Simulated scan of single mutants.
Amino acid sequence: MKITGFRSLVALHDWGRPVGDVNGLVPSGITEVPILLVETDGGLTGIGLGAHAEIERVFPAVEGADPRAVASLYDAMLAHVFKSGHAGTTFGTIAAVDMALWDLKAKMADEALWRTLGAGDRFVHGYASGLCYGLEDDAFAAHYERWADLGFTAAKVKGGRDLDRDISRLKTVRAILERNSPRPALMLDVNEAWNCKQALRHLAEIEKRVDLTWIEEPVRRWDAAGLARIAACSRTAVATGENLTGIEQFNPLFDQRAVDIVQTGSCWGITHFLRVAMAAHAQGLPVSPVAYNANPLAHAAVAVPNMIGLEIQDFSFPEGFSVDQEIRDGGLVLGDRPGLGIELDETRIAERASALGWNVRGGPHRRAERTGLCLAPSAGLAADQGRER
């Protein structure tokens, strides 16, 4: 079987609530889901999820190849773009192709991807999330009540702008999840909103009130020295890595002992996750993949020895998606449908192919102008809100 071509689709995901983080919100709760379909001469089609703007540039590296050679083709794509670099949209495109190739490889074996990758159990331990920054207090509590109903004992809260609000919300989630565990795991994700001194000061205050499992992206993703200082000076574990594009970008974090929980984003693909997971395993560190629509990294997460928990962000799937998995018992149960377990209703997807909330100037997650530069959180909030109006 040979790779012959590709097609692109854009589906919509209606979250039913505002979604976002400290860097920006999508008030409509409707986000776009780019889909790459890799076609073969054997009639099978591989599905890759994620933006792939550089597909015309990357595709020649895999065209005509046997899709089962996924690892070799991944390196071939990296080599193909070597001179101009592989970061950003190029790395995302490579990831979408890579995901589609893994989907094809498992479909050719007529088995679920988690089996192709050597996992022995279909259950993936998870933690509750939800891009919950824009929810009002009552909606915020109701959101995590739903996770508690599904047996979750761990949750991550979005914060970073108002310390009192962050502490209050962590306490709210703790009280909700205590019905499933006497000591639920609590995480706070500030999406690179602090500088090092702010992180140390804020964490010291949080640690007086809450037993925090990890702080996620407290400072900029490349600030190995700052992350190392935070890791050394606080009881809370430091989680980071979801925005790093390439295994080599993790080396400074490993060298400076700047990360305790190693993360990768689903938008960077399955081979990237597998390689980062093994690099982290060699350092004695756990890995935690960050979620994405239809949770494709769940298949890889359950196959590595050091996975600590998969982020699960929503209860439903994008429109036009049928996904063979179930959220229950505090995690995700993967099915037996071949490949990623995703089937697409292309007619329905085409009918709804108009994204809302994303195609705005700067995008929904545009970093605020004075992020990390405000002495008092309330002053920063007022300034940001004034600019938004």
Score class of each variant (00 low, 15 high):
192 E>G: 07
65 A>H: 00
120 G>A: 09
192 E>N: 07
157 V>W: 09
71 A>Y: 14
182 P>H: 09
110 D>H: 11
186 L>T: 11
164 D>R: 11
66 D>V: 07
63 E>C: 04
174 R>H: 08
67 P>H: 07
54 E>H: 12
111 E>L: 02
62 V>S: 05
82 F>V: 10
165 R>G: 07
49 L>P: 07
65 A>F: 00
126 G>E: 07
158 K>W: 12
81 V>Y: 08
81 V>T: 12
139 A>D: 15
76 A>L: 04
185 A>C: 02
101 L>A: 14
136 E>F: 01
71 A>I: 06
135 L>K: 03
175 A>P: 03
151 G>W: 08
81 V>D: 03
91 F>A: 15
162 D>F: 10
79 A>K: 04
122 R>P: 10
140 F>P: 04
189 D>P: 12
142 A>T: 12
53 A>S: 12
72 S>N: 06
96 A>Y: 11
52 H>K: 13
115 R>D: 01
49 L>G: 04
157 V>P: 03
152 F>A: 03
190 V>T: 07
167 I>M: 08
79 A>F: 10
125 H>A: 15
94 I>V: 13
133 Y>R: 09
76 A>C: 04
61 A>K: 04
52 H>Y: 10
171 K>N: 03
186 L>V: 02
185 A>T: 08
100 A>K: 12
52 H>V: 13
116 T>E: 08
158 K>C: 14
48 G>S: 09
115 R>I: 01
149 D>F: 01
